[in-house]
Design a protein around this nucleic acid. Structure first.
Lengths: 130, 130
DNA sequence: GGTAAGCCTGTACCTGGGTACCGGGTGCAA
DNA sequence: TTGCACCCGGTACCCAGGTACAGGCTTACC
């Protein structure tokens, strides 16, 4: 009674059932025990793990990074690894934001300069190509 | 002498030769005339077109959007289409920046709260899951 | 006319994060 | 015991934007 079937885990975690097997292949969730017939029997904590995985993904971590974070966390090391990685991720996010700000500025110039064609813009000092 | 071979176009535009054929398939560049032996003979303007395509990509337009922009521009319509699309793209960029700012804030909370594990965080009011 | 570089088509592969389909086996309840 | 939902493994496919490879032909230069 303390175990869940894959469909139940998927529904409670809000993911597609296929995603469970995918995460298992990717090493994000452990291979659960099986019923005599070969059906996966998940411990209830798997739902929480999936929720955490989704949260980490929303923070911009790739599945590979999430797998590493889970892995170092599970070894019981009291490492500052998560904080270090979060700091590194902040730097990545900042870089991406800076990129987008540059793009935004150029797009704004396109609008205010009155560009009317990608290929034959008649506006002076067209900001597209530069 | 007024035409270029695919390798020359690719080199001058700074793209991979294979990319030329890919863009041709995608409808971004027209099918050029061929030599008697079947080799593509590009007009020199193709280089400029490729440079413009790359510039538009850097502004966040997808290849499909670029194809449409080239297409409406080439029909000679003096439409405000490019400006309208640039404005829409600015809105997309703004939304993405807002997303990233939210992510940044949460990551910062992870750092300052001292989260030490994805799965078993000991910090109070862990911001990961919420 | 030989040879090497370059180009041709078609097809397969890559990244990342899944999703869908197929044919067949299981689990559970009535 | 039968019916049906569910699950199994394996494989293929999706998005975007390319990149790579194989086997064969063309072009250019000496």
């Amino acid at each position: 009674m303390t175990h869940l079937r894959s469909g139940q885990v998927a529904e409670q975690a809000g993911v597609n059932p296929q995603t469970l097997r995918y995460y298992e292949r990717r090493g994000l969730i452990a291979e659960p025990p099986r019923s005599p017939g070969g059906h996966r029997a998940y411990p209830p904590e798997t739902v929480d793990l999936l929720i955490v995985i989704k949260a980490a993904q929303r923070l911009g971590f790739t599945l590979e990074e999430v797998a590493e974070l889970i892995d170092t966390g599970r070894r019981g090391h009291p490492t500052p690894d998560l904080r270090a990685r979060a700091k590194a991720k902040i730097a990545e996010v900042d870089a991406r934001i800076a990129d987008l700000m540059t793009i935004r500025t150029t797009l704004n110039q396109v609008v205010t300069a009155g560009c009317d064609s990608l290929t034959d813009c008649t506006c002076p000092d067209c900001p597209m190509v530069t």
